[in-house]
Design a protein around this nucleic acid. Structure first.
Length: 875
RNA sequence: GGCCGCUUGCCGAAAUUGGUAGACGGAAGGCACUUAAAAUGCCUCGGGCUUUGCCCGUGCGGGUUCGAUUCCCGCAGCGGCCACCA
């Protein structure tokens, strides 16, 4: 038979149409079968999908199709994380409305996702910029406000004086705004905050139960929440005049054990005491100003010198009223952690040590390594920060660090200062409340109104949505909502007088903090349908990039808890299983002069001279600089458009390649050569099956239990079992390898069937094996699976065909082949009955010629037999 | 600076986490088919040697064990997250 090539351009759209027509992937939430919710992190509609999306959504699709075949009622939705800065930038640069730009991008990207053949339920699609979505988000905001989970406070922000907007920390590069390049200022602004810190302990504790999350992500969240146990401790001021009337200073410490090593107190430039002193001291005031200016820049902190200024205030040591210590304002003390004041123990903290050396303060070692010589132990330029044994610490001497902590805490909790205990044990968290105010147009409006008489008034729910106005201009910097002629003017819902709308919008991370819940009932009038959301959450398998390991996932965990308090869901952990897939990376290419002039890979050709790989521009011929391998990004132009790949090889090839070779959580370097390998495999499978199709069509599927065809059936059923395990563990690269192996095994039998040289038993076994093969490739290469199945007479869609069932008898081994070692070196192989007992194995092993010749008559000292594994003869 | 992870052929990787190291794929080389090319099929493919076979080999140095890619200690290189967090 003449074998034609498989043509994905013809086959793929055909099957996609059929799936659509039968609504195979639409989820009926009331279907009684067990549910399975698969979700990939929804994309920002930047305009085109990239290889990272292809990888992410392919993995999710394999899981969705596999679980569907396994009999689960699967939900696999898709939507758009559609608010954000790029749309406003486009508006500023090209004069298009952010909404128009965004929806246009969504259309383009949706078309790209469709040709990938993903098993998505598009009937649940929404964008976060749809008023139908953000209206419910405003509803949630009002509920949170009522529950006390939202509040306003003054806070310091990075202010870009050119763009007139607040910048996130990540948008400040070397102290300058990332767009304008202007020096960023610190400003005090009144902002809205979510009370995520209410849940600090619970968010931390619950991490232990998230067993299906990567350990790495749990650890990152744990560190981010940053719990520490310490002591809040008051120091009595010795000279109240100098301290402008302050009686005491409260510090937070995790090392009360080192109290006898203290040589100074340091307070933040924003500490109330520092502010009071600054009012009358120009020197202190100037120093505080300097601290505030330098405080932000990230990289600068690395090299920043520890600086301080003596305030003149003196405090008494808690255990020795005669011992007075100086109080400094220091540039390294943060106002928003602990109490904004510390005591410095130079011998036990590197920073304190640097500071003490600079200002000539005493350095008394108080902790030494266990077993060290007390008299010989000194502290030079390196502080001793580990646990150890107390020295030079009066009643603490000889105690361990841990015991000393307890002793100091117990004593000071029992000591009274001005009528209250001098210290109390305190748990501190690094986690801060979540500031969500953005001075931006393209975001969800915060639904409150400011009235001169009534203050901050929530928008009544009946007045929702607070819609973004369409007629806005981007010709000037700043927030277009602020200068809109009418939008912000509104009557106070309380008193009816003229009032103003809040013009800040919400951080886009808010939008993505509950979309997974909305997908379960996307048309519901309330934010969720309680019965449905409680049945469908948590998401069973969530898949996305590691870059969201902290913020998005933590915010979503908080939001679910907040929604539970407001009665919208009944659980607190939104994602049962989490998988973080690796990035798709690629070399970068740049024109030699002006290294930032990037060239896309599609315009590069390569030559090899003297073993050195050189890159040239495809049209101009100029030599290019081959740069580092980086995440595919628009700015570096090192992107490969998925459309090109899918256009030339088809969706199945692109999908299969994405799953091949590398473990899914590892970064992959994109290579065109690898795609060709996957394409060859697609063609090979097609050719082998189509050549044997006529014979297989009329045959009945029958695994062989004995005879020459037995090995065919065993190979197929063993592969089936193994691939099931691989898919459950998302080990797609292993599944791919096993599929290759199975096809290698089936190649010869299939050719025999095609040539009519196979007996009836073999044809039956081959048909059974081929149906298994099609079944296991269906989640990965769904179009090829449909096409092949139809070819051999399978007349239902593979998308609706249950997962094949392996025959335990064919998977079990009757005989095992074990290596036989002598003194740990392999000398022979032994094939023996699976259930052979120890003595039988020992005897058989010693009877082997190869073993006998190595032993050379020597008596074995010991024979180790690990059943079904290995034999080791020790002489 | 703190915490965490990784290191296996030319390359991506596998090894049932203490039991035959390198499955499977890619690249490369050879052969067959062909007028030729493509496509396809077959073979070789960690290093070395005195090549029926033997020795070495999982970043480096030690250790535990009958047996270590896997466990322990130390070192080096690469990467990630957090970063003046008291």
């Amino acid at each position: 038979m003449a074998s034609e090539r498989y043509n994905p351009r013809d086959a793929e759209p055909r099957w996609q149409k059929e799936w659509d027509a039968r609504k195979v992937f639409e989820t009926d939430t009331s279907d009684p079968r067990p549910k399975y919710y698969v979700l990939e992190m929804f994309p920002y509609p930047s305009g085109r999908i990239h290889m990272g999306h292809v990888r992410n959504y392919t993995m999710g699709d394999v899981v969705a199709r596999f679980k569907r075949a396994r009999g689960f009622n699967v939900m696999h939705p898709m939507g758009w994380d559609a608010f954000g800065m790029p749309a406003e930038n486009a508006a500023m640069e090209r004069g298009v409305h952010p909404g128009a730009w965004t929806y246009q991008n969504i259309e383009a990207m949706k078309a790209q996702l469709k040709i990938m053949g993903l098993s998505l339920d598009w009937s649940r699609e929404f964008a976060t910029c749809d008023v139908e979505y953000y209206q419910r988000q405003q509803h949630l905001f009002l509920d949170f406000l009522e529950k006390g989970l939202v509040y306003r406070k003054q806070s310091k922000v990075n202010w870009d004086p050119v763009d007139n907007t607040v910048l996130a920390n990540e948008q400040v590069i070397d102290g300058r705004g990332w767009r304008s390049g202007a020096l960023v200022e610190q400003r005090e602004l009144t902002q809205w905050f979510f009370r995520i810190t209410d849940f600090s302990q619970d968010l931390l504790d619950s991490l232990d139960d998230l067993n299906d999350w990567p350990e790495r992500v749990r650890l990152m969240q744990k560190n981010w929440i940053g719990r520490s146990e310490g002591l809040s401790l008051r120091w009595e001021v010795a000279n109240r005049d100098a301290a402008t009337g302050h009686k005491d200073i409260t510090v937070y410490t995790t090392r009360p054990d080192t109290l006898f090593g203290a040589s100074f107190l340091a307070i933040s430039a924003d500490h109330p005491l520092a502010r009071d002193i600054a009012a009358s001291s120009p020197e202190v005031d100037a120093f505080c100003e300097e601290c505030r200016r330098a405080g932000t820049s990230l990289a600068a902190l690395e090299t920043a010198e520890k600086k301080g200024i003596d305030t003149g205030v003196r405090v008494r040591h808690p255990f020795d009223p005669a011992w007075e210590l100086p109080v400094y304002v220091a540039n390294f003390v943060l106002m928003d952690y602990g109490t904004g004041a510390i005591f410095g123990c130079p011998s036990g903290d590197q920073r304190d040590l640097d500071f003490a050396r600079k200002y000539g303060l005493s350095v008394v070692p108080v902790v030494m390594p266990a077993g060290a010589d007390k008299d010989a132990f000194t502290v030079g330029d390196t502080a001793f920060t580990d646990d150890g044994v107390m020295i030079n610490s009066r009643f603490l001497d000889g105690l361990t660090t841990h015991a000393a902590f307890k002793e100091v805490a117990d004593r000071l909790e029992a000591t009274m200062l001005f009528g209250t205990p001098q210290a109390e044990r305190k748990v501190n968290f690094r986690l801060r409340d979540w500031g969500i105010s953005r001075q931006r147009y393209w975001g969800c409006p915060i639904p409150v109104i400011h009235c001169d008489d009534c203050g901050v008034v929530p928008v009544p729910k009946k007045d929702l949505p607070v819609k973004l106005p369409e007629d806005v201009t981007f010709d000037k910097p700043g927030n277009p909502l602020d200068r809109h002629p009418t939008w912000r003017h509104v009557a106070c819902p309380c008193c009816g007088k003229d009032a103003r709308r809040e013009t800040d919008t919400m951080d886009t991370f808010v939008d993505s903090s509950w979309y997974f819940a909305r997908f379960t009932a996307p048309k519901e009038d309330a934010p969720t349908d309680k019965a449905i959301v409680d049945r469908w959450l948590p998401v069973d398998q969530y898949i996305g990039g590691i870059e969201h390991a902290i913020l998005h996932l933590l915010y979503s965990r908080f939001f679910t808890r907040a929604m539970r308090e407001a009665g919208h869901v009944g659980l607190k952990e939104p994602f049962k299983g989490l998988f973080t897939q690796g990035m798709v990376v690629h070399e970068t290419y740049a024109r030699a002069e002006g290294q930032r002039d990037w060239v896309p890979p599609a315009e590069v050709r390569f030559e090899e001279t003297d073993g050195k790989r050189r890159a040239f521009h495809i049209t101009t011929g100029e030599e290019l600089v081959i740069g580092s391998i980086e995440k595919m990004s628009k700015s570096k132009k090192n992107v490969v458009d998925p459309d090109d790949i899918i256009g030339s090889y088809g969706a199945d090839t692109a999908r299969f390649f994405m799953l091949s070779d590398s473990p899914p959580d590892r970064d992959i370097i994109w290579s065109e050569a690898g795609v060709e390998g996957s394409f060859r495999f697609v063609q090979r499978v097609w050719r082998l099956i189509s050549e044997a199709a006529d014979a297989l069509k009329s045959a009945s599927s029958n695994p062989a239990k004995e005879g020459t065809a037995l090995s065919i059936s065993q190979a197929a059923h063993k592969t089936l079992k193994a691939v099931e395990g691989d898919f459950e563990k998302l080990a797609f690269n292993k599944a791919v390898a096993r599929v290759y192996e199975l096809v290698n095994t089936l190649a010869q039998p299939l050719t025999q069937v095609a040539e009519g040289k196979a007996d009836a038993t073999t044809v039956g076994a081959v048909k059974d094996a081929v149906m298994i093969l099609i079944g296991i490739i269906a989640p990965m290469m769904p179009h090829l699976a449909e096409e092949s199945a139809r070819l051999i007479g399978h007349d239902t869609l593979m998308a609706e065909t249950p997962w094949p069932v392996f025959d335990p008898e064919l998977v079990a081994e009757n005989e095992v082949t074990m290596p036989v070692q002598v003194n740990g070196k392999k000398r022979a192989e032994l094939t023996i009955a699976r259930d052979a007992d120890q003595t039988a194995v020992e005897e058989a092993a010693l009877a082997l010629e190869a073993v006998k010749s190595v032993l050379d008559g020597a008596k074995p000292k010991k024979i180790i037999v690990v059943p079904q594994r290995i034999v080791n003869v020790v002489i």
